[in-house]
Amino acid sequence: MEKKITLSVKNLKKVIGKKEIIKGLSFDLREGEVFGFLGPNGAGKTTTIRMLVGLIKPTSGTIQICGANIEDNFQEAMTNLGCIVENPELYPYLSGYNNLLHFARMLDRVGDDRIKEVTKLVGLTERIHDKVKTYSLGMRQRLGIAQALLGRPKVLILDEPTNGLDPAGIREMRQFIRFLAEEEGLSVLVSSHLLSEIQLLCDRVAIISKGSIIRTDTVHQLLANRERVIWHVQPLEKGKEVLGSLTGIDVTDDGAILTEYNEEKIPLWNKQLVEAGIAVTEMNRKMPVLEDLFLELTGGDTIE
């Protein structure tokens, strides 16, 4: 059964000055899923997220959060949304608790209990009464998440949530996000230009470049059929001929041949190579990574 759609974006466009920065994005988020927003620097991730959270007005297109249009029904839409845009910039001169109190006051029906609850959830109970300016970056990130969770949102939007965290912190954050999605049923939108992170964290990914979505799919689907085998053969020319007659090949710069990974056929191809008097010096199975796909799709370009 299809899960409920919590965030729906249709044909979102943004023109700043004369430049079209976002060129018509459409995607949906479902309950309990972590959605990755992947793109190189300057692709338009932050701009899109700013539109989703109502900081900037889309030039055209609609955004609905739990059925409420963000432009017509800002208040209802925002009730179901928690977000961190870029860094969680809280008030450094207030204590963590007062920061939470501040944002709780802007929400309906969020009391002291909830503040305590989220504080505990992000593990800040001990330091919550200290001034935020004494916090480390990781603690600020956690406080940011706590703040985003205060209003029990259905949709959580995080722009680069692992920015500036150490490997342990990244891992912790990842587990926490997964926990929120799986246990609490939140929809989480995560943007990042770190492929490995998205690959480990997300259920579905949208790859975005120069303001357009190039592809949206589940991580599983994207990676399927993308396992490769690397052959190092001697002599190369003859090897190419033989393998090329059997299957599609690519040749890398350092003189290796790439073929698809096919469990049944690999021994067969190997045998044929050997029979043709070609020495297979090395044969490797290459694990699939989004990076290849990403570079392939975006044409390897970064900032335009």
Partner: peptide
């Protein structure tokens, strides 16, 4: 930067 948090409340 806190304006981003302030303006994304309901």
């Amino acid at each position: 930067g806190s304006i981003k948090l302030l303006l994304t409340r309901p």
